[in-house]
């Protein structure tokens, strides 16, 4: 079965919790394990937080989260029209952060990569950033 959804919300920190809960509710249709859904929640939280803090610098903006699944293959896309990332490779290095004064740990992308199967980042300075994350949910047997 295939399904899709798309969320658009203001880039404010209170929506971080909203985004991860909405995404987890959508993927709950696939009957994932608790651990799988928590992995997706953490990854979504990281990507949305990045858009808010780095993309828009905690100023006004819009974050778009779209989710699709095809069978057990899920995909989450988090997009913003913020400042973009000049050096994607550098930004994905663990512990690298451009905002140490905010005590950012620099683990955002590392977490996305640890908890999802695939992470792809596309970005253009002053245009925005698009993070695509994929995860395959394990097949659960209905009859044991």
């Amino acid at each position: 079965m295939e399904n899709r959804m798309r969320l658009e919300f203001n880039a404010v920190s209170v929506n971080e919790g909203f985004a991860r809960v909405a995404v987890s509710a959508f993927f709950a249709q696939l009957n994932p394990t608790l651990d799988e859904i928590e992995d997706v929640k953490t990854a979504v939280s990281e990507a949305v937080t990045n858009s808010i803090i780095h993309g828009y610098g905690e100023k006004e903006g819009t974050v778009i989260v779209s989710c699709t699944y095809h069978g057990n293959d899920s995909e989450v896309v988090v997009m913003d029209s913020g400042v973009g990332i000049a050096d994607i490779e550098k930004s994905m290095e663990p512990f690298f952060t451009t905002k140490p004064e905010l005590e950012r740990s620099g683990m955002g992308f590392a977490f996305m990569e640890a908890f999802m199967d695939e992470v792809e980042v596309e970005s253009e300075p002053f245009k925005g950033t698009k993070v695509t994350m994929k995860k395959r949910f394990g097949e659960r047997k209905l009859e044991e």
Binding site: T42, E46, E103
Partner: peptide, 13 residues
């Protein structure tokens, strides 16, 4: 019940 990398930053700090 939930913690992401922002929490890591707080703890390390």
């Amino acid at each position: 019940e939930f913690m992401d990398s922002s929490g890591i930053g707080v703890l390390i700090g």
